[in-house]
Write a protein that binds this DNA or RNA. Sequence first.
DNA 1: TAGGAGTATGCCTAATCGAAATAACTACAG
DNA 2: CTGTAGTTATTTCGATTAGGCATACTCCTA
Lengths: 195, 195
Amino acid sequence: MSDETNRRTLPATSWAVLGLLSFGEELSGYDLKKWSDRSLRFFYWSPSFSQIYSELKRLEKAGYASSRQVAQETGTRDKRVYRITAEGMAAVREWAREAPVDPPVLKHGPMLRLWLGHLLEPTQMRELLIRQQEFAEDMRLRAAADAERAKDEPAWAYPALTLKWAERYHASERDLAAAMLDDIEALAAERGEHP
Amino acid sequence: MSDETNRRTLPATSWAVLGLLSFGEELSGYDLKKWSDRSLRFFYWSPSFSQIYSELKRLEKAGYASSRQVAQETGTRDKRVYRITAEGMAAVREWAREAPVDPPVLKHGPMLRLWLGHLLEPTQMRELLIRQQEFAEDMRLRAAADAERAKDEPAWAYPALTLKWAERYHASERDLAAAMLDDIEALAAERGEHP
DNA sequence: TAGGAGTATGCCTAATCGAAATAACTACAG
DNA sequence: CTGTAGTTATTTCGATTAGGCATACTCCTA
């Protein structure tokens, strides 16, 4: 409630949304969702629609963003577009520079399964890893495509760099799956399970 | 409330805790937290104490775990230890084999900052990446140490494999930070910002 | 005209964390 | 051998965050 509580204490998700706005464009909640699917998604997950809308309200209440109603051309339903304010700009900048960086968090579903290998058949483990390889390669391609798209705009130079990072990250994920596949084979062989 | 709601609909976190118990030992909430810090942590984050305790209650209610009060030797405070039940064992096994695998989720704090590079000084970006390198190397070493510890017990063969995966994963994280450091330098040079 | 896809939003529950309560044990100054 | 400050276990409480699901409206297509 106090200024202290409202400002600067925002969760990382809010800052991510405000960050999306910090590139200067006026965007609707729906636009924001699409942007985040093509950028944040590759290294910081993508918030759901509902989350984006509540963040926007919070940001507006904190004075970090302003909105206006826009009547659409074709007669579609009106939409509300948001723009970052000067305070908002100052706040993200300060957050980006000063706030403690929280460490990367990984929740790797496939690894959680493999960690329970004693409950699985070797075939299932292989299956899991092959899927994982494909998934990683797919993500890599998407990140690469979006990186390509970003590289022309000078304003997107840093987003482009992180997309490049994401591309390599997902390439590595793919290779790690392949390496583990080999490890599993080796373990199976060692236990005399070669079919 | 119904059987359907209670059983099998559990969130991944519950399964992770039940998975911890699926190795057969009788453990307290505190023990579970320690175990998860040395295993799950490296590829699937580690739940907080509070969460572990609530998961345990839920698992017990679902009939997947049973508990008993234990009076400690030296007169320390009593504790409650949990053991997996036969139903619990069947349920995790089925979950591990049948449930849809949710894709890996990454929330990379440092990348979120770098993505907002237009708000930072080049020095701060370098600082961020160097910290990230150190962090990754630290994680790598911890995972390696825990992998070493796990490799003797045949029961821990699969956990050991995932720890090996984690070791490589964090090595890759470290290298990706180094690569991005180079990219940042290159970009700065290109913009004529070499000091 | 029924059904699907795109756009926009609200509500309610589940997941998760931080802080703190409780208790005994250790170490070490006095 | 006593006071006390710090450490390790053990667990619970209260609050916030994040997410799932429902809704509503418009256009387009079969």
